[in-house]
Computed example of a mutant assay.
Amino acid sequence: MRNTDHLGGINAFVTTARHGSFTAAAERLGLTKSAVGKSVGRLEDRLGLKLFQRSTRRLSLTPDGERFLQSCQHAMDILQQAEAELTSHIAHISGRLRVDLPAAFGRQRILPLLLNIARGYPQLALTVTFSERFVDLIEEGIDLVIRIGELADSSGLVARRLTTQKLVICASPEYLLQQGEPIIPEELSQHKCVVGFRRDQPISWLLKDCRGEVNRYVPPATYEFADGDAMLAAVLAGCGLSQLPLWLVGRYLASGELKEVLTGHSGGEMPISVLWPKSRQLLPKIRHIVDALIKAAEDGLLD
């Protein structure tokens, strides 16, 4: 019982330190705030030192706590590695897999693939979230993310490019009938534009110049949406022009519900990548999903 409590106290301490409060740690661990606090308190008593500086406003690590956290994280990494190596030979896929996906692409292209895999592996449990923001996989306990666009600092992660999404500028025929069709990029400033909104990221479209070189162009942001499906809905409703991926608008272009414009300046592409925490040995569930995503990309199912 004493050893179990000792390990539980370390887990409670590390989780609290990572999330900044007993309340957040309790939610993560599925315990009460009081239970987490008492577990950390018993650990401090056993060590004979304070790991946290407590105040009415915030919880912060003491210098001893910071040193102990580094040691604990290193030890937990070793334990996780040992578990991965031990289970790497297991043929069946099991356990909970936490995945974060970009909204529209994730729902249309990745989620069906994940659900199909889940049906074949009853012992696999999924937690799927949809966001466009940067996520700290280690901090937030996420196993796998799909991201669109050039990757920022990804130290500590493994990144594998799956495919690229081709971009086109389009609008509804009704909008073009009322507002006219732009012939050169400079005329975009006279139009209403539907753009993707990302916090801390500049809004720009990728356009080819007369030499065929791709440059960034900042369109007038008449309507801003943080979701590709919402952008598509606005363009179909005649709200303006937008640069959208071909996988999202292809069928509407084919049906005539949307019309491509500035075709000579199209051709911009954005990479689509899968990322997961760097480790020497992949857990079977992560390896299986990554392999399935790579195969789907090679078969053209993600285009």
Rank of each mutant, 00 (worst) to 15 (best):
R2E: 04
G9L: 01
F13D: 01
F13A: 00
V14P: 09
T15V: 09
A17S: 15
R18C: 08
G20Q: 11
T23G: 11
A25S: 05
A25F: 11
R28E: 09
K33L: 04
V36G: 00
V36N: 02
K38C: 01
S39H: 00
G41Q: 06
R42M: 01
E44M: 03
D45I: 01
R46T: 05
Q53G: 02
R54C: 03
R57S: 11
L61Q: 07
T62H: 05
G65H: 06
R67V: 08
R67N: 13
F68Y: 11
Q70Y: 03
C72K: 05
Q73R: 15
Q73F: 01
M76H: 03
I78H: 06
L79Y: 11
L79P: 04
L79D: 10
L86P: 02
S88W: 01
H89T: 13
R98Q: 12
V99F: 04
L101W: 10
L101D: 07
A104H: 14
A104F: 13
F105D: 06
R109V: 07
I110H: 08
P112G: 03
P112Y: 12
L115E: 07
A118N: 14
A118M: 12
A118S: 14
R119H: 14
R119I: 13
Q123H: 12
A125Y: 06
S131P: 06
F134I: 05
D136W: 06
I138A: 06
D143E: 13
I146C: 04
R147S: 14
R147I: 12
R147T: 15
L151P: 14
S154D: 12
G156S: 09
A159G: 09
L162K: 01
L167T: 13
V168K: 14
C170K: 02
A171V: 07
A171Q: 11
E181D: 03
P182G: 14
P182V: 11
I184A: 11
E187N: 07
L188K: 08
Q190M: 07
H191T: 07
V194R: 05
V194P: 02
L207D: 14
R211F: 09
V214T: 12
P219Y: 14
P219M: 14
P219L: 08
A221H: 14
A221T: 06
T222Y: 06
F225M: 11
G228K: 14
L232H: 06
L232G: 04
A234M: 08
A237W: 00
G238S: 10
L241I: 14
Q243N: 10
G250W: 08
R251N: 09
Y252H: 15
Y252L: 08
L258H: 15
G264T: 10
H265C: 12
P271Q: 13
I272K: 03
P277H: 06
Q281H: 07
I286W: 02
H288C: 02
A292P: 01
K295V: 00
K295F: 00
L301R: 11
